[in-house]
Write a protein that binds this DNA or RNA. Structure first.
Lengths: 216, 216
DNA sequence: TAATCTACTTAACAGTGTTAATCAAATTGG
DNA sequence: CCAATTTGATTAACACTGTTAAGTAGATTA
């Protein structure tokens, strides 16, 4: 690598880095403001003009940092997917027994939904089209988070504690069980209160795991 | 009741009825156009101006027949709830055995979702706030459709084929199971295809009913 | 110092839901 | 039969939205 030699070159490089950094900062500020607004107003009452006003810039400035509104929202959802994936992996790593693992994964899933209703709604109910947008870099696709689940089911079958069968189908069944309750709470919190969700969480997991358990 | 005697009175009454009828017709035409547009464009790409254009009226005319956009959409959802309720009742009435009844109700639920994805989405995922709007007349609340489910569960417990327990909790569990799969399909049809839903329908019902079944 | 480039702004377009003012035609009362 | 009024619809307008194009200070470069 060639080092800058003259002072002028060094200054130029420093200034370029500084500008790069400031650009990154503003991008971050836009996302933070957008995130706050999203949580406060919800996805519908969420406008670029409001985001801009919140950080003291004109609305069109956002277009210098994001292609359009979708790209901004998608960046936020992407971060939520990262958190989601980490929490699921963390839960799975906390215990070895397949059945216990399915339980903690399920609980982690419930907790993510309960703690991030707005993002859950975007990820799984409203903007799941985002799942199928290619990521800019060659990272794993978002949906890879579910490998945690299929792995646990697979391990359970191999250990002989789950009925042999289609791993994908079993995982889908388990997924739809937990998703059903979480999404019902998000859609109609007045009818399905958070308390009801918490009370029924374990029942759902019982039914899910019990339904898949090897019948003696 | 006093009959109109003079010709003038009779004409007046007839004309009044005619105008009433025409008003009803236009209201119906608005709803039909709105329904078609809803199915074609989805809830997001659905505007009053487009509805108006489709029936050859100015956009503001709609406000003479509906308080606002929500009331128009709600009227459509209301009709969907009617169809939903009828289909569930019809299914439940087709068979007496509680377990078999739970099965046919579940299947009817799946079929409604598969046949009416746009309305299902509005009813259970996007505009479920509508559930809690008072109906104009003193009819039963929309949610009454679920009595069909709780009745079947109740009957199952009384017949001794389901584990005794909280009827509401059991019904909720069953509901979230079927809702989970249907709503996943609606949110991400590319990942959860209709075929997958049809293939897993019975598995889900097995797990749901099996999980609630009296353990011997 | 002059030219260029960068970050940002204002102006504008096409669209939305919605309200107020208007207008013609039908209905009514004398 | 004519005047007053009500009815059903319209156009104009407001305040929003996402988005694009043109313009503008200020830093950077040659």
């Amino acid at each position: 690598m060639i080092e800058p030699v003259t002072i002028a070159e060094r200054v130029r490089k420093g200034s370029s880095q500084r500008r790069e950094q400031e650009k990154e900062n503003l991008r971050r500020a836009i996302m933070d403001a957008a995130g706050e607004l999203l949580l406060a107003q919800g996805y519908d009452g969420f406008s670029l003009r409001q985001v801009a006003e919140r950080i003291g810039y004109s609305a069109t400035t956002i277009y210098l940092y994001f292609k359009d509104k979708d790209e901004l929202v998608f960046s936020l959802i992407d971060e939520a997917w990262d958190r989601f994936g980490r929490e699921l992996e963390q839960a799975a790593a906390s215990i070895a027994d397949p059945i216990a693992q399915l339980r903690v994964i399920g609980r982690a899933y419930f907790n993510f939904g309960l703690n991030n209703p707005v993002y859950y709604q975007l990820m799984f109910m409203q903007r799941s089209d985002f799942l199928f947008c290619a990521k800019p870099d060659e990272e794993l696709p978002r949906i890879a988070s579910f490998v945690v689940l299929t792995n646990a089911v697979q391990a359970g079958i191999e250990a002989g504690v789950l009925k042999p069968g289609d791993v994908q189908a079993y995982s889908l069944t388990a997924w739809s069980l937990v998703h059903g309750l979480v999404s019902l709470w998000i859609s109609m919190p007045q009818l399905i209160t958070e308390g009801i969700v918490r009370d029924n969480m374990d029942t759902i997991l019982d039914v899910a795991i019990g339904g898949l358990l090897l019948q003696k």
